[in-house]
């Protein structure tokens, strides 16, 4: 089992999975702190006589996700390039039975990272929706104000 997991995550050969996840984790942390704070401020600064729908507040405020997505993509590019840099180990990869092998090696970590990042971003949005609800539930605002469009938060 351990060997199986290693096979899945260890490669591209010589690349450190820990380092890869580390980069992604730090990137994620930075944008959550900065962007999250941004949202909190936006919520708190709304004049109570002119309350806006949650979606309007969130509008594009999680677009920092794309920075994270770009980091994931950079890792993908780096992984593929590692088979042609220093040595041409892609010559070996081309002789393996499964043509998918190299893609599995290059994509597993960044794709997991990307999905995890997306999930995290969603949870952040959800958390602030909670905060929004807590603050404004005593005000007479329409029910659809509490809704949020996750996609709008990203662009």
């Amino acid at each position: 089992m351990k060997r199986h997991i290693k096979r899945f995550f260890f490669y591209p050969p010589g690349e450190s999975v820990v380092a890869m996840f580390g980069i992604l984790f730090v990137t994620a942390l930075i944008f959550i702190v900065i962007l999250g704070d941004n949202i909190r401020e936006a919520i708190w600064l709304i004049p109570h006589d002119r309350i806006k729908p949650f979606s309007d507040i969130l509008n594009g405020r999680l677009a920092g996700f794309w920075v994270y997505a770009a980091a994931c993509l950079a890792i993908v590019v780096r992984n593929y390039r590692s088979f042609a840099a220093q040595s041409r180990s892609n010559y070996v990869m081309k002789r393996t039975k499964s043509g998918f092998e190299i893609h599995r090696m290059c994509l597993t970590v960044p794709v997991i990272g990307l999905i995890a990042g997306l999930l995290l971003t969603y949870l952040v949005a959800l958390g602030y929706q909670e905060e929004y609800t807590r603050i404004f539930s005593s005000f007479p605002i329409p029910a659809e104000y509490y809704d949020f469009n996750f996609w709008r938060a990203l662009i």
Binding site: P13, E15, S87, S89, Y91
Partner: peptide, 13 residues
Amino acid sequence: SFGTCEHSFFPGI
């Protein structure tokens, strides 16, 4: 199999 002066081993392992 192919051994080349360009090298095709995995340098990092």
